[in-house]
Design a protein around this nucleic acid. Sequence first.
RNA 1: GGCGACGUAGCCAAGCGGUAAGGCAGAGGUCUGCAAAACCUUUAUUCAGCGGUUCAAAUCCGCUCGUCGCCUCCA
Length: 487
Amino acid sequence: MKIYNTLTRKKETFSPLEEGHVQLYVCGITSYDYCHIGHARSGLVFDMVVRYLRYRGYKVTFVRNFTDIDDKIIARAAEQGVDSGKLAERFIDEFYTDMDALGALRADIEPKATEHIQEMIELIQELIDKGLAYPAGGDVYYRVGKFPDYGMLSGRKLEDMQAGARVDVNEQKEDHMDFVLWKGAKPGEPKWESPWGEGRPGWHIECSAMSRKYLGKNFDIHGGGKDLIFPHHENELAQSVGANACSFANLWMHHGFVTIKDEKMSKSLGNFLTIRDVLREYPAETLRFLIFSTQYRNPLDFSETALQDAQTGLDRMYDCLAQISRLVLAAETGSDSLIGQKDQKKIQSMRQRFEKAMDNDFNSAQALGHLFDGIKVLNKVCRMLAHQQGSAEDLELLKQAGATIQELAGLLGVLQQDPVQYFQEKKEALLAASSLSEEEINALIAERNAARQNKDWAASDAVRDTLLAHNIELHDGPDGTSWGVKA
RNA sequence: GGCGACGUAGCCAAGCGGUAAGGCAGAGGUCUGCAAAACCUUUAUUCAGCGGUUCAAAUCCGCUCGUCGCCUCCA
């Protein structure tokens, strides 16, 4: 497997420190508001990473933290006149609601910053003892100039940053680039006891402390969004390497942003959609499908059209599976195989091609492409077998192909419903929103069929138009007329 | 100003030195009384532009243009 490493700026062959066991730390949310689509991407990307690594036979220890104490939380709580701890807790619950709705697996360990204050204090003390940090006026700062590798992750030099720096003037810092490890408490703010007085941890220290506690000083993969590279991950790296005097995460994975009209979706721009905004209009599976139709490092432009395209594509996949399951149940078998060698090969190589794509830095877009490629062949085969008897082996191949597609798509968390049921439920949901009942529709169809018997095409078409006006589409097939609701 | 990423058909998106996957939309066909739906087939001599390296470049190098991101909280 190859994974792109932000630290080295290239794809590297992945091999965990401990044979067969991957240790993964991902930066989770700061819990003060509902999650938006960007958080969904983050959650889903690492959900896929974990699922795929496990599929590949690795044991995965997946840690994802919650930042439940922070300036933004305090500010929001003050705004709303609620306790900051309660606010943080509430939005952690909301996070779970959303991630569960998206079908994302939970992390194995989900540490909260406020439950690891002691570990952070110890780490800060170590840094002070090593001369890498200094207390000043109730705060403690990291002495960036003492860490020669500062900037190695984000690829920037201290001098360059200072030149155009937009950092707030802080008289207590020895250097403008120094960052805070511990913040002295102002009146009324949440606080904890520490050797430097009452206060709370800075943002970056929690990840250094918690990753060390749960995964050790040196572990395999550290992940998050691209916006965390600087300063968050750069600072984490400085803290951990500084304190532990050994490598920190061997590989850094950063996913791209969700954009709207090519601009980053963010709170400050106000152009964000929450996960629940989207889930009100579209199934979670559709959102997942959309997110995985772009490789995780590239930007993903979010739009209504993109969502609809994803929905159409997903329906097409389900339709193929539904055809297969109907055929497998109903078809009679003969002795001659109808599936050509080339098609057989395409079908059978699906898994291998999917794996190759995923092995290449989790290229889910290409992996889905291979699945569609297989579906095209399977559709052709289904059509053939619907008209002529194929061999028992033909049906077995179809059945296995359907199961394989569902298994592989499951690594992306899509295509997990029973296909026949999927369309049935969809139909019911749409019908519920329609102005006609099933009985009325059936009565109208009977009426039209009578007209068709009499070759009264005008009357027949009038009924069809009436139904269409209510979003009901008729499908005339060899076995009679069925109907569906137009989406 | 510093650093970085990206620019592939109408739209989305793979491609990582060997001659352009896939999806959506479009066009033709099968089916149909006609349709619709579904399915099948098809759609880039060319990868922002210009140079260079190479037997061979969308892929490597340089420059130009454009878009975006980070440098401040951010997934």
